[in-house]
């Protein structure tokens, strides 16, 4: 099949960026989207042009490294799929594809389609954990966890930290990412002692990073490769309000 690509090229954070058109022929429908870009990059290298920089690693949809907006959809049009797991058969022959990086102030651009998502790491560093010193843990079965809670916690914990939620949000908000972490740990008995300080710290860091506010569009959920629900955002809000009230009370 043939595809026409318009890829955002930007040499560095300060350099001007623009879309560059590439026409690809002989694309196999069995290729993944990133394999298609690999092939293009090989062609660029053969022509002594600079290949397109894009983040990728596991190519199994779990590491969260890859991420690009394809025709206005983070990770492309397929539901619950990262760019590396998206296959060219998803597109019609002759498709025209616009490929852009995640765009958010909190994700400064490094090069082409590569952005710096360190803001998400810093949010976790601010409190996205359960404080447990190695060796101090009680016997694993000492605290039973209802299956429902464990399953729900797992739904939230499935977040791969790719940043698609931020990219998809009309407000560039990171609420779904933060909500997933707060809910994962807040749903488990082990996470209770730090529940209110955790949510306070995570939210403070999120705001400090310059993400926008949630206005409940739900685009994050639609873009999330792990289909994490915005119900967790309500849970985050509830936890945050509770923490604020109980602290002031």
């Amino acid at each position: 099949m043939k595809v026409t690509l318009h890829v955002w090229r930007q040499a560095g954070p300060a350099a001007p960026g623009r879309f560059v058109r590439y026409d690809m022929t002989d694309v196999s429908p069995d290729m993944s989207f990133l394999e298609m870009l690999d092939v293009l990059n090989q062609q660029l290298i053969a022509r002594r042009e600079e290949p397109i920089a894009f983040d990728h690693d596991c190519r199994e949809g779990i590491c969260g490294a890859c991420g690009m907006v394809i025709n206005g959809r983070p990770h492309g049009p397929q539901r619950a799929t990262t760019a590396c797991q998206l296959h060219m058969r998803t597109f019609p022959d002759g498709a025209e594809l616009w490929i852009e990086p995640w765009r958010a102030r909190a994700f400064p651009l490094i090069k082409d389609l590569v952005v710096d998502r360190g803001a998400l790491d810093r949010i976790v560093q601010a409190g996205g954990f359960i404080t447990v010193r190695t060796g101090s843990a009680p016997e694993a079965n000492a605290i039973p966890v209802p299956k429902r809670d464990a399953d729900l916690a797992m739904d939230a914990a499935a977040c791969i930290g790719c940043g698609a939620c931020v990219a998809a949000c009309p407000n560039a908000s990171a609420m779904l990412f933060v909500a997933a972490k707060v809910s994962h740990l807040g749903l488990l008995p082990q996470g209770q002692p730090e529940r209110s300080t955790r949510v306070a710290n995570l939210v403070a860091q999120m705001d400090a990073e310059g993400f926008g506010a949630c206005t409940n569009h739900g685009e994050c959920m639609a873009a999330c490769p792990k289909e994490i629900s915005i119900d967790f955002i309500a849970r985050l809000n509830r936890d945050y309000i509770k923490a604020a009230i109980s602290h002031e009370g």
């Binding site: 318009h6 955002w8 960026g17 879309f19 907006v69 025709n71 206005g72 959809r73 616009w98 852009e100 765009r103 958010a104 102030r105 909190a106 998809a168 009309p170 407000n171 560039a172 908000s173 310059g210 993400f211 926008g212 569009h217 739900g218 685009e219 959920m221 639609a222 873009a223």
Partner: peptide
């Protein structure tokens, strides 16, 4: 929070 906008951002949900 988004100083540089998208060429297009499709509304889904």
């Amino acid at each position: 929070a988004r100083p540089v906008g998208y060429h297009a951002l499709e509304a889904v949900e």
